[in-house]
Each structure stands twice: as structure tokens, then as C-alpha cells.
């Protein structure tokens, strides 16, 4: 599925980066080490972490996008880094449980 389609259907806010990308599946975690270990390429990553390290993790794993839940805003340094590295950051007012529920309904599945 195309990231743009996801953004439109779930009404996500675009904070940085481009949307012309494929989404291979979803991964939800707030522990960076867990994402480094288990997320897969082109996954969309759901988290409430706004720390600068999320950009490095997204870059390292080649993630499709980061979705910040609960209306969280990235820290200034995080946003700056995301723009530099061309990492897509999106946001939603939903909590993880419902956001993931909606993504799952759209047909985005998890890694097995």
C-alpha cells in the first residue's frame, strides 16, 4: 500500500518528509532497541517517542514513516534531523491501540 493513501484514509498530519513510498507493514513500539531488532524495511512505525534518536532508527532500518501518537510533536532537534535525512514523520490525535486498529483494518499487517 502507498503511504499517501494511508495518510489520506486515516487523516494523518504530515510533519516532515515525502509520501510517495510503499508500506510493507506496521510495527508498534516505544523501545528503540526493540525497533532496531524487529522492525522491517518499509514498515510504518508507531511510537510516542519524540527524541532525536527516532530519526536515526528510522534511517538505520529504512522505515517508511514514523507516526507519532496522541498529538505528540517531535522535539526541535528531531524535526531538524528528520528534514536533513528526509525521514517522514506523521502525527495523529489517536492513541496507539486505535491507530493500529485502523491501520490493520486498512489492510496493513504486522510482521510475522
Amino acid at each position: 500500500m502507498n503511504l499517501k493513501e494511508v495518510v489520506e484514509k486515516i487523516n494523518l498530519k504530515v510533519i516532515s518528509g515525502e509520501l510517495d513510498k510503499e508500506v510493507s507493514g506496521g510495527y508498534s513500539s516505544d523501545l528503540l532497541s526493540d525497533v532496531i531488532a524487529n522492525a522491517e524495511e518499509d514498515n510504518i512505525w508507531i511510537t510516542l517517542q519524540t527524541h532525536i534518536n527516532i530519526v536515526a532508527v528510522a534511517n538505520l532500518k529504512g522505515l517508511s514513516a514514523i507516526i507519532l501518537i496522541n498529538n505528540r510533536q517531535p522535539e526541535d532537534t528531531t524535526l531538524q534531523k528528520a528534514i536533513e535525512e528526509n525521514i517522514t514523520i506523521l502525527s495523529t490525535e489517536l492513541q496507539t491501540f486505535e491507530l493500529v486498529g485502523k491501520l490493520y483494518e486498512l489492510g496493513i499487517h504486522g510482521n510475522s
Binding site: 506496521g26 510495527y27 508498534s28 508507531i46 496522541n70 496507539t96 493500529v100 486498529g101 491501520l103 490493520y104
Partner: peptide, 20 residues
Amino acid sequence: KLTMFVSCGKLYSIGLEGCS
């Protein structure tokens, strides 16, 4: 054994609501 993503997705799809 399921991931957080799959767990939330499955529970939401059978009608469990979230706290949002």
C-alpha cells in the same frame, strides 16, 4: 507471540475499543 501491532489490530477488529 503476536507483535504489539498485530495484537492491537486483532483486538480492534473484534470490537475492543481504545482509550483515545
